[in-house]
Simulated scan of single mutants.
Amino acid sequence: MTRLPEEMLHNLCPMHAVLDETGHIRQAGPTLHKLSLDRLEGARFLEVFEVYRPRAVDSMPQLLQTEGRKLHIRLRGGVRTPLKGVLVSDGQGGAVVNLSFGIAVMDAVRDYALTSTDFAPTDLAIEMLYLVEAKSAAMDASRSLNTRLQGAMVAAEERAFTDTLTGLRNRRAMDSVMERLVRSGHAFSIMHIDLDFFKQVNDTMGHAAGDHVLKHVARVMNDETRAEDTVARVGGDEFVIIFGNLTSRRRLAELAGRIIERIEKPVMYEGRECRVSASVGIAISQVHGQDPFELIERADQALYASKRAGRAQFRFYDGSDGPDETLGKVAVGNE
């Protein structure tokens, strides 16, 4: 059966419009019908579509003069989708105008719910849409993967700087914080804390009891420090607290006294008392660029001076000859 020219146009050019000599639409392709809410056949082409390039096209004779040129067209109503078109005269005063979406194809597919059947078989628009969708899916997958990787990196860094038993910072985190404070030039102080009689708890009651005590001590230190301070467990029963922008001897003495007092209180484990105390050494940065490891060494010297003096007390490093005589469990010394 021989196909009619109209049917052939529908298959080859689903966005065509056949115009008569008066400029009225005699036939429109199936896809073109999806763009307009009004019936196209019988309507004047230039009343449904606006030719905005080239300008001053408002009659059929002027429209015929654009033959072979690219037309820029948009709907006068509705979504006003921009279209590209080309006109071919039929030699009898009428014409065929074939339209396409151009780079607006993605918007058109969304706005009019178009499918592959709305395009000519040779039109590359659908293939382009598939590529765009594939790229979008790949980009979404890439963003999701990057988000997961960043989350994993943050989690890994957090684990690398965290003591697994107590949840405090570890030595690596302590070194990083001190180096940052030294680079910034901010004054800070260090409190080195060592638990007294902790070995006896481990030996007599077991490591589970010792772990229980360490977790309790960690809570005490977190309670007594600010959010911006760094509390680190740097050894089995050794802790370091870094106080940024805090160098008041009176304030540090108050903190040390409270920490010692709270740690001395018995900790219950399975109905038995665990008794430990704490010796504390304190060092204060004196000048910008202070070597952080030297400061730790000074706090360590003050700590062992506290132990030699009888434990369960604190002592400051005076910054010159060695540990000074400021010791006790309550606020002492001058600002």
Rank of each mutant, 00 (worst) to 15 (best):
P61S: 07
G42V: 01
M268T: 12
T66C: 15
N222T: 12
T2F: 13
I25P: 06
F316P: 14
D107I: 11
R74A: 08
R169Q: 00
M178Y: 04
V18F: 03
F101Q: 00
L195W: 07
M174F: 11
I25T: 00
V86A: 06
A278R: 05
A302P: 01
A305Q: 05
F316Q: 13
G244D: 15
R74G: 03
M221H: 03
K329V: 15
I259K: 07
M1W: 08
F197M: 02
A141F: 08
S142W: 09
V105K: 09
P54V: 15
E224N: 12
G91E: 04
A309P: 06
A309N: 13
I126R: 09
S320N: 12
T247N: 12
V220P: 01
A309Y: 04
R44Y: 10
G319M: 09
Q92A: 14
D58P: 05
R53M: 11
T162E: 14
V88S: 09
F243Y: 14
L131F: 15
G42M: 06
F188W: 13
H186Q: 14
M8E: 10
N202H: 02
M174K: 04
F45Q: 03
T117M: 02
D111S: 15
D223C: 08
L145Y: 10
D324W: 10
M205F: 11
P266H: 07
K215S: 10
D229G: 08
L64Q: 03
T166P: 00
D321F: 13
H186K: 11
A232D: 05
E335F: 09
L40R: 01
D90R: 02
P30D: 01
Q200S: 10
R219W: 04
V154F: 12
E228S: 13
G85C: 05
L46T: 04
A253V: 14
I190W: 07
R148S: 09
L83R: 01
V96P: 00
R272M: 13
R308V: 08
